[in-house]
Every structure is written in C-alpha cells, then in structure tokens.
Design a protein around this nucleic acid. Structure first.
Length: 642
RNA sequence: GCCGGCGUAGCUCAGUGGCAGAGCAAUGGUUUCGUAAACCAUAGGUCGUCAGUUCAAUCCUGACCGCCGGCUCCA
C-alpha cells in the first residue's frame, strides 16, 4: 500500500507522496516545517479542505496561511464555534443554532430566554480567549445521518435537529462534525487545526434575530463578534471603526448643520439652508446632465386613486408600504401618496398616441416620494419615509435598448467620476420565477450584455438575480474609505407596458408595445447625500459645498471692502459668507476650518490696498494674496458644476 | 412590527430617591488681532410624554413617542 500520487503545487512544481498521506503531513515532509506550522487550511482541486484530510489521488494542492485574504473568514468561523461552546458552558440550557462568518466578523444565534447583557459579553469574551490560549485542536469526523440526529436529539438541540433533518431531506448521507474540547457542532468546514490559530476574539454587540429570519419563528439571541490573527490587527480595525464613526452622516449632519429630524416626522428630514444648498446643487446638476442626455423633465401628482395602484400591481404587493389618505367625506382610503414614479410616468406616456419617431422617450422626475418603512428600519438619511429619486423612465423599442444602456452608463460614469466614486457593474439575469418566455429573456439579456461589452465595462454576473419583470444592471460604488454602496440601477421592464397597455405606432402603421427602462444614478437624493457626506467626511469639493468661501477680516476697518468682495462673488453666483463676529482672527479661521469651508478669504489692510484677497484652502494651504479677479478665476474652475 | 440599549440646556456629556451640573454654543460688555479656540459677565432645563409606587421621583415600575444596534450573509 505504498501507491504514489502526484501533488501539483501552485508554482507548477510536482511532488510525489504516498497515497493516504494527510495534507498536514505532506506539507511538513514535502514542502517545509515553516509552512506546516503556518498552514491553516488547504484547497484540493479547488475545494476547501482541513489539513487533517488525506490525499488519495493525484491532486492540485494550495495551502493557505494567515496571509491569505480568505483566512480571516476561516478563523472567524472558528471563533463562532468557540463562542458557542463558551456560551453553552456558561449558560446551561442554551440551545445553539447557526453561526456564520460575515463580512467584518461573525455572529452566533442562540435560543435562550434572557437576552445577553453587556456583562455577559465580557464574560463570554474572556472565556473564549482562554479557549484560544488553550489551543484546543479542531477534530473533524464524518458520521451517518442517523447517528447525527441521535446525537443532537439527545442534547436537546431542537434547532440543530431541524437543520439535520433538512440536510437529510436534501439527500445527504453523512454529516461532518467538528469537535474542540468537549464541544461538538456539525459544520461544512473547513476549520483551522486548532483554536490557537484564532489569535483574538472581540465580541461587539447583541441583538434579537428570528430563527431563519422569519418573524413568525422564535426570537433568538444573536451575538456579534469579530476575530483577528493578533491584537494589533484588532486594534487597527477598532481604530478604523472609530474613524468611520467620525464621518457618520448623522453626526456630521449636526456638526455642519445640514439637516434635522423631529419626532413629529420620523423618517422625513428638515433641510437647513446649508443642507438645502447641497440638495439643490445636486438636483440642478442632475437636471443639467439629464437634459444633456436627452431627457425631458416632468412633474406628476403626489397622490393617486387606488385605481392606479391596482393597474400597476402595487395595491396587491406593496400596499403595506404605502401611506393611505383617508377621505374625510367617504371615510375610505381610496388615495395613496406615491411610493414610486413609474406608474405616473406610464400614465403620462399614455396621454397621447405615440409614433415610433417619438422613441426613445426619456422622462425624468425628482418628485417627493413616500414609503411607509417599518419604524425599526428608519436610519438617518439612508432609510427614510420621504425622499426623492433622480428617477427616469425610458420608453423605447427593443432594438434601442443597447443604445440606451450606453447613454445611461455615460451619464452615470460622469457623475461618479466627478465625485471620485469608483464603481462596478452587476448584471442580473432571469430569476426562476419570471414573466415572459425564454425568447424574450434571451433578447433582453443579450442586448444588455452586448451593450456592456461594447462599452468595455467589466461586470459581475448575478445569475437569477433579475426582477421577475426583466433583467437589470446595478452599480456598486466604493467610497473614499472603501465601503460599498449600491447606487445606480438600470432595469428592463416588460410587465409595465402590458399592464398599462402602452403602445406606439410603428413604421408598419401597426401598434407595438414599447419596452420600459427604469433607471437612477443617485438612487435617492437623501441616501446619496448621506453617502457623499461620509465619502467626503463633510469636506465637500468647492462646487458642492454649501458655503464655498468665508471671508474674515483682520480688523473691523476692512469690513466695508469685505462686504464689497462678498457682494461681487455672490453676484457671480457663488455661495459666500462674511464672518463679522467680534472674535479673534484665529478663532474665525478655526471656525471656517471646523465647518470645512473650501476657501477662507483673509482680508487685511494689504488686501484692501491691493483690491485682493488672501485665500486659504480647507486643510490649511495658504494661497497667498491674489487679485480678486484671480480668485474669481479659481472659483470658476473649482466652484462651478462639473 | 420584533429583540436589546438609550433619551438630562442648542450641542457633547456628568449626576442623585430630598432645591439640577460642566464644557462649547447663545446673549451683553471689553478686545480689533495676519492664518485652528481673547477676557469678563449673564441667561438658559416640567431631566422625552403620560400614568403608577413613595412623605418625596429626573432617578424605581409600566405604557407610549423618538433615536441607536440588529432582525433571509442560512451546517
């Protein structure tokens, strides 16, 4: 039984080894003890494997250490097991459910009467870190389904039993168990060789969570945590979290006086003069861009009879999210505030008979929309009940779709580029439950794909993620600190034209159905502004800043000239303030910096004499005295819409 | 909506079952200064709302309102 196998390593080199050797042993004997010590898990022919697994045939082998980006995910999953074991040790009677690794860490859901307190978390964390120090090996074992069922049933783990049954129902014959210490869970793996590889566990928060995410199911107690290979990495992460908190749009919204909320209008913002300026600048900019890209802007009613929502289908599927309006005479809720613009755009399209020559018809609207979001889901400007989208619907022939994709992506690229947001496209294709035949979907997906390809735009394919009424392209942007947000969207819709019986007269003098395209670049102004506040940390570029320049005089005797400068710049359309307060020069400059105003114009006797200004950029760069006309030229470059 | 936490001056936050505190901001005065915080004084609160326990509640209890972290990242 000394059959030899060939193991191919990522560098292309090949090694011979006896069949049946464990991966760990293979690494130690045929690669090196250093790697053997650092190794966490492996990929065998592309499949994740524990190091304890054996190699039985010729394989391609990759070894992963803590340097691999995926390794964090591995130890976080390890950490979830450790935390679960500690919880069951400290709180007997607690049942375990599931505990996956997530983007920044992991969570574990427990079934337990009393919620975890912050003191509980400290205790669990301390105990979990002791288990790391004990360096308990993770032991993998495969057992028959029946044995697994008996094991968890005997432990009284009702949720585990339910999962085992589900897995069995899917046809699995065996289950993989992982033990560490005297604790056992079933898990696909892989896991690290031992708990000592985890480094450090930090528990973050608790929350309630429904079993399987369904509110009809029992409420579980969730513990969120994270893990790192060492304390330093954890500390860096915590510091980054603190930094991110400093840019939180809710905090900056207060500090920079951009918007407020009042308990009488939850989920609907009051925009201060500065916030309104931001809003209006974006709105004006988007108007200009859409006009350049061939859109016409319209306004439609904010409130509609339910007849519209019955036609659109919202009355059946979306009613819970719509604000109904009570008619005080009839006592009926026959009207609703619009939660979306599309139905009213469709009505608008239907006002007159269209020729193929009208197409594509591109309608844009920035009307306020209302959606009755669940109270618990409201959050700052990112989740609100009243908002406006930079909404647009394009009515066109099917063969015009590729051109419309290109036209849209050009618009979107201009916007995101101007703001320094990088983006990537996600192309979602037909879902299992869908409308229309395969030929239709073939054409629809084909035209989106070919448009993406002629644009040379790289995209990620999301098979099955499309809407039931058509495929779509979504755009994820990354902000300045690397967070991702889903913003722009471009969706094909074959359903709406049917429901609204939209038509155009073709060259053949017969009626045809147009295709509807839903599209947005900002998404909603509210959420987009929140993202921009965090992206720029409140230090907006001059063209977007609510106050573009603040004038401060060295002494009061320069005020008359300073007022002239203010009026001159305002007459050119710039947003300029003069700080006339009786504070020291330094204090007024500091104030302008704290408010993150792009330019502070210092005016002293020299400037009055020379009819100049001495601008200082946000951040402290002193531009030295320059003639007012020179500063005007600077503003015309940086202060005008891009 | 559900689970947990929180709600004290415009803002950030102390605090106690027995007359409510600080810093910043505000207001009045003094100061007129060359690139990140001048000085003095004054005013400011139904301690989220309503009910209950208590001789006494901002503090303890409950309900409600709002905010924050979560609630389809499924072995």
């Amino acid at each position: 039984m000394s059959q030899q196998i060939t193991v191919t390593l990522p560098d292309g080199s090949r090694k011979q080894a006896p069949a049946g050797i464990s991966i760990g042993q293979f690494v130690r004997e045929h690669i090196g003890p250093g790697l053997a010590k650092a190794a966490l898990y492996a990929k065998v022919n592309g499949q994740d494997m524990d190091l304890s697994r054996t190699l039985d045939a010729d394989t391609i082998l990759q070894i992963f250490t803590s340097k691999a980006p995926e390794a964090l995910e591995l130890i976080r999953h390890d950490a979830a097991h450790v935390v679960a074991s500690v919880v069951q040790r400290l709180y007997p009677g607690t049942q375990v459910t599931i505990g996956p690794a997530i983007e920044e860490g992991f969570y574990y859901d427990f079934f337990k009467e009393a919620p975890f307190t912050p003191e509980d978390l400290e205790r669990i964390e301390a105990e979990a870190n002791k288990d790391i120090a004990a360096d308990l090996p993770f032991v993998r074992e495969e057992v028959a389904m029946d044995d697994a069922l008996r094991l968890f049933d005997a432990k009284g783990e009702k949720f585990k039993v339910e999962i085992v049954r589900d897995i069995a129902a899917k046809g699995a014959k065996t289950l993989t168990l992982y033990r560490h210490g005297d604790w056992v869970d079933f898990c696909l793996g892989p896991h690290s060789p031992s708990t000592g590889k985890i480094g450090v566990i930090k528990l973050l928060s608790t929350s309630g969570a429904y079993w399987r995410g369904d509110h009809r199911n029992p409420m579980l107690q969730r513990i969120y945590g994270t893990a790192f290979f060492d304390k330093k990495a954890l500390q860096e992460w915590l510091t980054r979290q603190e930094e991110a908190k400093k840019r939180d749009h809710r905090r900056l919204g207060k500090e920079l006086e951009l918007f407020h909320f009042h308990p009488y209008a939850p989920g609907a913002a009051f925009w201060t003069p500065k916030g309104t300026s931001l809003y209006q600048t974006l709105s004006t900019w988007m108007r200009r861009l859409t006009v350049e890209h061939g859109y016409v802007e319209i306004k439609t009613p904010l409130m509609f009879n339910k007849g519209l929502w019955e036609t659109s289908g919202h009355w059946g599927k979306y009613r819970e999210n719509m604000f109904m309006v009570l008619d005080s005479e009839t006592g009926e809720h026959d009207f609703s505030l619009k939660p979306m613009n599309c139905p009213s755009h469709h009505l608008f399209y239907g006002f007159k008979k269209h020729s193929y020559r009208d197409l594509p018809l591109r309608l844009a609207t920035q009307d306020p929309l209302h959606r009755n979001e669940a109270t618990g889901s409201l959050s700052g400007l990112t989740r609100v009940r009243q908002f406006a989208q930079d909404d647009g619907h394009i009515y066109c022939r099917e063969d015009q779709v590729p051109d419309e994709v290109r036209n849209f992506v050009k618009l979107l690229d201009r916007v995101y580029n101007a703001l320094g947001l990088t983006y990537h496209a996600k192309f979602s294709t037909r879902p299992p439950q869908r409308l229309g035949d395969d030929a239709l979907w073939d054409r629809a997906e084909g035209s989106l794909r070919s448009a993406l390809e002629t644009l040379g735009l790289p995209y990620e394919l999301k098979p099955g993620d499309g809407a039931f009424y058509g495929p779509k392209i979504d755009f994820d942007v990354s902000d300045s600190i690397g967070r991702k947000w889903q913003l722009g969207t471009f969706q094909l819709d074959y359903l709406a034209p049917e429901r609204f019986e939209l038509a155009y007269v073709g060259e053949d003098n017969a009626e045809h159905r147009p295709v509807v395209l839903h599209r947005a670049v900002f998404g909603s102004f509210e959420r987009f502004i929140a993202i921009l506040i965090e992206h720029f940390a409140g230090a907006f570029p001059a063209w977007l800043a609510p106050v573009q320049a603040v004038i401060v005089t060295v002494a009061d005797r320069q005020l008359a000239y300073a007022r002239q400068v203010r009026e001159r710049l305002r007459s050119l359309g710039y947003r300029v303030e003069l700080d006339e307060r009786s504070m020291t020069l330094n204090a007024r400059i500091r104030e302008a910096q704290v408010q993150k105003v792009p330019f502070t114009l210092v005016i002293g006797d020299k400037e009055v004499e020379a009819q100049s200004v001495a601008p200082r950029r946000y951040g402290g760069e002193d531009l030295k005295s320059m003639p007012l006309s020179e500063f005007e030229a600077l503003l015309s470059k940086e202060g005008a819409l891009p």
